[in-house]
Design a protein around this nucleic acid. Structure first.
Length: 421
RNA sequence: GUGGAUGUAGCUCAGUCGGCUAGAGUACCAGGUUGUGGCCCUGGGGGUCGUGGGUUCGAGCCCCAUCAUCCACCCCA
């Protein structure tokens, strides 16, 4: 026996018998996004590394240490996409969509790759559903993105999620806030925990999120991003909140949520699930007015979100969501001898052509073994073909759930009719 | 990247103080009816005990390393 090869760390198999949940969720996502005017976009699995360095931001953890980057045979540096927004923006820009009628919308369901230490709700290859909306600067667009995510979660009957909203300002007001925050924590530097002292220069925003009780106590009175917004940003945020209320969506303002991607401006939001372990953020998104310009296009405002599908399916499983069960095998045709097998084959071939989920035994096993197999498959009905059945051209259709039988002609149309009842 | 827990059959797990050929349940295959599933009975296949070293007369068990999984931090979806 050769050495077995396991799946790479942080990846997962989705086996027959499990995939129906994902198929169901993906169809619902496509349906809901479509209802809001979003059509699907499919972009490459890998892009030039430069796209993410510029778009996501090379000071972020994602770009700094989590990307799957390699040099291809032509000497180009390419990277497996760590998220979906940069590729979508690049594609819309490159293909002239942003020169067409705006707003322009797209949704996607795709795999993303980040080299992180795996844990519950976090994989190295994971899947995201997201939407992107380009060319609408006003709060209506922010609200629409939130409403799409909200609708998805509501129609999948997700309980125990809350919407958290914040505004992190624009390039104009953010530096003032950062400075104020740094000044505040500098005054308490000696009391901060070790990691927070490191954060002080690099990313003072993170201190707001520290779990240490001491840091939390200090952070309680720290300046809030919302108090440092410029007039336009403050007005925008007020309108986003008003429109969410108008849409009947409850939210809490959480001044401590900060997106880890550089492209976000103004509105940021998360849908957080209470009981989903440490990785409770099922959906995260916000506005990114600067991205398209960073990628070399005109200045075009945009909003969007990403929803983690593994996390979403985990939540649905945990809440006992009633996924519609898979269609079972409708009819398993058993054969008792060589002549019966050929009749079973032609019958099954014809039924499958007609759209019936029919099966027969590929291994020429005993009738008993065929029955056991049909039972394990969950087949609704069985039909057994042998000498006497072929002679009379009639056979007993057996209902596997109660054992009752009906005798019918061996005829595809008649069988199909009987099965559909 | 940091810290903690855990790795024995496809799955869930026993395995005494280090001591014969490593077990159970379940799943799989076959038989118990020359052609009828679930229940029951009998038999069978399946393990380099995560991997590699070390200690020992002898290691599934003790030690070290490594890999993987889970949990938390970090970060994020």
């Amino acid at each position: 026996m050769a050495q077995q090869i396991a799946a790479p760390r942080g990846t997962r198999d989705l086996l027959p018998g499990e995939s129906f949940k994902w198929r169901f969720v993906e169809r619902r996502l496509a349906d809901i996004c479509g209802r809001f005017g979003y059509d699907e976009i499919r972009t490459p699995t890998f892009e030039h590394t430069e796209l993410f360095a510029r778009g996501v931001g090379d000071t972020t953890d994602i770009v700094g240490k989590e990307m799957y980057t390699f040099t291809d045979k032509g000497g180009r540096s390419v990277t497996l996409r760590p998220e979906g927004t940069a590729g979508t923006a690049r594609s819309f820009l490159q293909n002239g969509v942003l020169s067409g009628p705006l707003p322009a919308r797209a949704y996607y369901i795709l795999s993303c790759f980040r080299y992180e230490k795996p844990q519950a709700g976090r994989l190295r290859e994971f899947h995201q559903c997201g939407i992107e909306l380009f060319g609408a600067p006003g709060a209506d667009a922010d609200c629409e993105a939130i409403r799409v995510a909200y609708t998805i979660l509501r129609e999948l009957q997700v309980k125990n999620v809350r919407l958290e909203l914040n505004s992190i300002g624009c390039p104009e007001c953010r530096p003032r806030y950062h400075a104020a925050l740094r000044d505040y924590f500098k005054a308490h530097e000696s009391k901060l925990c070790e990691t927070c002292r490191e954060r002080l220069e690099k990313n003072p925003l993170r201190i707001l999120d520290c779990k240490s009780p001491v840091c939390q106590a200090i952070a309680k009175d720290a300046p809030l991003t919302l108090d440092y917004l410029c007039g336009a940003c403050a007005e925008h945020f007020e309108e986003v909140k008003r429109l969410c209320s108008l849409a009947g969506i409850q939210y809490t303002v959480n001044p401590r949520i900060v997106r880890g991607l550089d492209y976000y401006t103004r509105t940021v939001f998360e849908f957080v699930h209470e009981a989903a372990g440490a990785q409770g953020t099922v959906c995260g998104g916000g506005r990114y007015d600067g991205l398209v310009e960073m990628l070399g296009g005109q200045s075009i405002p945009a909003v969007g979100f990403g929803m983690g599908l593994e996390r979403l399916v985990d939540v649905l499983d945990a809440e006992g969501f009633p996924f519609p069960p898979q269609e079972p095998v409708a009819l398993f045709v058993c054969a008792a001898d060589a002549a019966g097998r050929d009749r079973a084959r032609t019958l099954v071939f014809e039924l499958q052509r007609m759209g019936v989920r029919a099966q027969y035994d590929l291994n020429e096993r005993s009738v008993k073994a065929q029955f056991k197999y049909a039972d394990k498959l969950g087949a609704r009905y069985t039909l057994t073909l042998g000498e006497s059945e072929l002679a009379e051209n009639r056979a007993a259709l057996r209902n596997m759930s109660d054992g009752s039988t009906v005798t019918l002609d061996i005829d595809p149309a008649q069988l199909a009719a009987a099965l559909s009842k």
